[in-house]
């Protein structure tokens, strides 16, 4: 069982308060429309490094809760990040793995050995202890408020269905570049203001 990405993100938006939300790749496109905020950030374009960017942010800003929506393919690109996160262990860090089992941006090719892939076991194996998995919308919606109040680092796998593929045409890439630059500037300015 799995959720539609937009329904999943709408539930997250409903329960969001003042969290900083960092998104990577496919989740970025819908998130900015579903939950517009100066506290959205989507400018990391290196697979697997959105979470480590969020880790640095969480360490530097312990007064803010940092939520990262990372893709499963991106996590596979940089599995060692889990060791780094478990070692630093910021209590204000929430890593949500959007697990649709494919590389969506490039056309839906499956992740290597995906039928045997168990992210929770890997996370448990590196010492992360706040572990969750959500596969249906009702449970996700019900448990989100509690999840976002847990002391982190929190690691959650969110099972979603493969979505519409955004083909990376030149025109689309140009729009994304302009959008990312705008949002990054706004995000930085928002963080610089006293709260």
């Amino acid at each position: 069982m799995s959720m539609k990405r937009t329904e999943c993100l709408k539930a997250l938006a409903k329960h969001r308060t003042d969290e900083l939300v960092l998104t990577a790749w496919q989740s970025s496109y819908a998130w900015h429309q579903i939950s517009p905020s100066k506290y959205n950030f989507s400018s990391v374009r290196t697979m697997g490094e959105c979470s480590t960017f969020g880790l640095g942010l969480a360490l530097a800003r312990p007064d803010k809760r940092v939520v990262v929506l990372e893709g499963d393919g991106s996590l596979c690109m940089n599995l060692g990040m889990l060791l780094t996160i478990a070692t630093a262990a910021p209590p204000n860090f929430y890593q949500l793995i959007m697990h649709n089992r494919v590389y969506e941006t490039t056309g839906g090719q499956t992740i290597p050995n995906v039928d045997h892939l168990d992210f929770l076991s890997i996370a448990r194996g590196v010492g992360l202890s706040r572990l969750h998995r959500y596969s249906d919308l009702e449970t996700w919606d019900l448990e989100l408020p509690g999840l976002l109040r847990e002391s982190g680092p929190v690691f959650a796998v969110v099972d979603i269905q493969p979505d519409e593929t955004h083909i990376f045409s030149l025109d689309f890439a140009t729009k994304i570049r302009a959008r990312d630059t705008f949002y990054a500037k706004r995000f930085r300015e928002a963080l610089a203001k006293p709260t």
Partner: peptide, 11 residues
């Protein structure tokens, strides 16, 4: 590299 970038954004 990415951790340092996040720290930068955190001021």
């Amino acid at each position: 590299m990415a951790v340092c970038c996040g720290i930068t954004y955190g001021g």
